[in-house]
């Protein structure tokens, strides 16, 4: 019955952030005995990405192909509903990630494939964005050459303001949520996804905020890799 104030009149969001702040990001690599692995936390969204490859592939493809598998743990979300492995939304996410990373691979390997497994441990909004960031780190950790980082971030529009990095509560209320993935160096957009309605006038501000968010995330990921 009570309307949730996503941004209080004092300018704070539900969790105390200001509209243009991202959540806390933590990342590390090389935690499992796979070719490449990464663990990333964006707020309460935590996931592990593992990469195996490049390895020999049975198909006769000229470029490397990437197989992406998304897996959501049963305890990962707020409710106890069990997620089916073939959930269409997860498959959609896998396809999106595959398309992104196949395009940044430096095409040197033929007849090879790379397996990317994403395991979501906790989901609290921005799962696709976190998955993209995690995959990027894991690929770098595996030593697979890519042209540039790919970072992703969500942004939305609420109470006449653009907000950055939405958590689950914000995503599930009627706020338009834009997920953007781009390569930081040349700011080219690789993925853009949006739910709900957003007026064209406000679209610009939301998009530029998302881009800024991606840059912030890039800096954080870069720092982590170089450690």
């Amino acid at each position: 019955m009570s309307r949730l104030e996503l941004i209080t009149p004092e300018g704070l969001r539900v969790d105390g952030r200001r509209p243009k702040e991202t959540r806390r990001i933590y990342s590390r690599t090389d935690l499992l005995a796979a070719d490449g692995s990464s663990y990333i936390e964006m707020g309460n969204t935590k996931l592990i990405t593992t990469v195996y490859g490049p390895k020999e592939s049975k198909n006769n493809n000229s470029n490397s192909i990437i197989n992406v598998e998304f897996h959501l743990a049963s305890f990962a979300s707020g409710s106890t509903a069990k997620k089916l492995r073939n959930d269409k939304k997860l498959m959609e996410n896998s396809i999106a990630i595959r398309d992104i990373f196949e395009s940044v691979l430096i095409k040197s390997f033929g007849r090879s494939e790379i397996d990317v497994f994403i395991q979501v441990l906790q989901s609290d909004g921005g799962v696709l964005a976190a998955a993209i960031n995690g995959t990027c780190l894991a690929l770098i950790d595996a030593g697979i050459p890519i042209t540039d980082y790919v970072t992703a971030c969500t942004a939305g529009y609420c109470n006449e303001q653009a907000i950055l990095d939405l958590n689950y509560i914000e995503e599930s209320s009627e706020v338009p949520c834009l997920t953007v993935a781009l390569t930081p160096k040349n700011e080219k957009i690789l993925l853009m996804n949006m739910e709900h309605r957003l007026h064209l006038d406000n679209f610009d501000s939301v998009l530029s905020l998302a881009k800024t968010g991606c840059q912030t995330i890039y800096e954080s990921l870069d720092e982590c890799i170089r450690k």
Binding site: D15, G16, N44, D124
Partner: peptide, 11 residues
């Protein structure tokens, strides 16, 4: 019955 977990940032 559900459990709601929220982040809480201090500024």
């Amino acid at each position: 019955v559900i459990k709601i977990v929220k982040e809480h940032y201090l500024r």
